[in-house]
Simulated assay, not measured.
Amino acid sequence: MPLRIRTLLAAAILLLPASFAVAQEEPEVDCNNAVAQMDLNICAHRDYAQADEELNAAYKKAMEATQKMDADYKDMGEQYVGAVDALKRAQRSWIGYRDGQCELAGFEARGGSMEPMLVSGCLADLTRKRTAELKSVYETED
């Protein structure tokens, strides 16, 4: 293969990831004034993404708290240890519940343009509720 063709192919391959990144960028949407269904779907997804970030931060803190619990209880005997495992099991179970419940919520508009908004709204709502539950693991009332 001539050098020129190899150079062009290499350049095309290098540009592919950049073109995919541009194609996947989310359009600019003013979520305070969204009216079109596509914009409402985008805004609902953004809301869920923000709630998910907060959940991940709360889970990390809850994990740290349960690790401390296990360390504190270890002196009392191995039968008192297990907070970390309980948190992991609870979170895995919650994820399954969340996904199924929000899929069900989407059936209100199954196949319609509103379905993604309903699913994202459900995901955001349940995620915020779970975040509050996780915070109760490491926050104490004064």
Rank of each mutant, 00 (worst) to 15 (best):
A18D: 07
K60F: 11
Q24I: 14
V29E: 06
A49C: 05
R130Y: 13
D47T: 12
Q79L: 07
A49K: 15
I5Q: 15
D72Y: 08
T131Y: 01
K74F: 02
V84H: 06
C43N: 10
A86Y: 10
I42G: 04
V35M: 05
L40F: 12
D75G: 02
A86M: 01
Q24A: 03
V35Y: 04
V81S: 13
Q91C: 00
R130M: 02
D72N: 10
E53G: 06
V35I: 05
A44M: 00
M117Q: 06
E103K: 04
M117F: 05
A83V: 02
G121H: 09
T131H: 03
R4I: 11
V29N: 01
C43A: 03
M69V: 12
S19A: 03
V81T: 06
R98I: 04
G106N: 06
R92W: 07
S120K: 00
P116L: 00
V35N: 00
L134M: 08
R98E: 02
L104N: 07
S120T: 02
S120M: 02
A132W: 12
Y138Q: 10
R128A: 07
G82W: 08
R6G: 07
E78H: 07
S136C: 11
E133Y: 07
M117R: 07
R128P: 14
K135C: 05
G82H: 10
N56E: 00
M114D: 14
P17S: 05
R98G: 03
A58L: 04
C31R: 03
I42Y: 11
Q37V: 08
A90G: 14
E141F: 10
E78P: 14
V29S: 00
N33K: 10
D30T: 05
G77M: 12
E64Y: 09
E115N: 04
T131A: 01
A109W: 11
E133N: 10
E141Y: 14
A11C: 05
A18T: 11
V137R: 07
D30L: 06
H45T: 13
V81K: 03
A105P: 00
Q67T: 01
Q101H: 15
W94Y: 05
T66N: 12
H45I: 08
R128K: 05
E139P: 14
M1P: 14
L16C: 14
A51H: 01
A57P: 00
M117C: 04
N56D: 01
A10C: 06
V22A: 12
A12N: 05
M1I: 09
N32Y: 02
G100N: 10
G96L: 12
V29P: 09
V84T: 13
P116K: 00
R6N: 13
C122S: 13
Q37E: 04
D75N: 15
E26Q: 14
E54A: 12
C43H: 02
G106S: 05
R130E: 07
A57Y: 01
A58Q: 02
P17L: 11
Y80R: 09
P116V: 00
